[in-house]
Structures are given as structure tokens and as C-alpha cells.
Simulated scan of single mutants.
Amino acid sequence: MARNKGSKPQAMKERAARTAAAVSPSSALAAGAAPKKRVGLLQFLREVRAEARKITWTTPRETWITSVFVGIMVVLAAVFLQLVDLILGWSLSFILNFANGG
């Protein structure tokens, strides 16, 4: 049986190493980047405030519509599950009655 080109153990190890290097994410420290410096409390609070300003809140109308939609979906799911439960219960009782000879 002929071996494929590059099927020697050393070639396989080299391919595995190249694949692992290409797949694995390189960390900032491994890439030679300096670690982030510590930020003071005031700077942190300023950044939090700036990010909080970017938040877009839903309008009361959008909140109401979404809430009604969720309520409708909950009712539909409850009705569906109740129907499935009834069908499975009837089926199981039919099978058990048939098995008992009745």
C-alpha cells in the first residue's frame, strides 16, 4: 500500500502545528501588545456615562405592542400544549384499555 505524499510523521506534525497556529486566536500578550493600563475611577464613570447615553429605549407604544404580542403567544402556546396533552392522554388510555382487553 502506497503512502500519500506528506504522510510521514514529521510532515503530519508540521501540518498539525500550522493548522493549530492558524486556528488558535492570538492573545494581545502573545502578539507583543502591551497590556492595558489601569483606568481611574473618574475615567471609568465618564466612560460608563458615555455608553449609557448611547442606549435607545423603546417607546411606551412599542412596549405595549410587544407585551400584548407576548401575552397572545403565551395563550396560544398554552392552548397548543393543552391540546397535545389531551390527545396524548386519550391515546394512552385507548392503548391501555385495548391492552387490558376492554
Rank of each mutant, 00 (worst) to 15 (best):
A28N: 15
E47L: 06
P9S: 14
G32F: 03
I65V: 11
K37A: 05
G40L: 01
T19C: 02
A17T: 05
W57F: 01
K36M: 11
L83S: 11
D85A: 15
A16W: 01
K54R: 08
A52N: 04
A22G: 12
A77C: 09
M12C: 13
A21Q: 03
L41Q: 03
Q43F: 00
G32S: 05
P25I: 05
A16G: 00
A20H: 03
D85I: 14
F44W: 01
L81R: 04
S67N: 11
A78Q: 04
R15C: 01
S26E: 14
R53Q: 11
F69I: 15
V75G: 04
V23M: 11
E14C: 02
L42R: 08
V39G: 02
F44H: 06
V70A: 15
V75Y: 01
A11I: 06
R53I: 14
E14W: 02
S67L: 04
M73T: 10
S7Q: 12
E14N: 10
A20I: 03
S67H: 06
L41E: 02
R15T: 10
A34P: 04
V74Q: 02
V70M: 08
V68G: 09
Q10M: 14
A78L: 09
P25D: 14
A31W: 01
F80G: 13
P9L: 06
I72C: 08
